[in-house]
Amino acid sequence: MTERQFTVDDLHRILVEGAGETEGGALGPDTIDTTFDELGYESIALLETGSRIEREFGVSLSDEDVMDSRTPRGLIEAVNTRLGTTSGAAV
């Protein structure tokens, strides 16, 4: 079974679905290290995004995974870490 990766495109899509699009446009290489705050996403947007990632990817994210990931790169890494640690148990 191929392990599913959580990509910047996934994060962009889920952010927009759950919390709407910012003026800045798509997340990409230029903004992957920009803080969510600067991108225009506040804590509730991140809670909603975390909840949607959990649903779609079948992972369990802690509050710290979501709230301490200050940038898209941080959140992508946190999700992929959880995907890695849970993949063995995945059905």
Partner: peptide, 8 residues
Amino acid sequence: LPGRLLPQ
């Protein structure tokens, strides 16, 4: 309205 406001 900006897109950020629509889902909330």
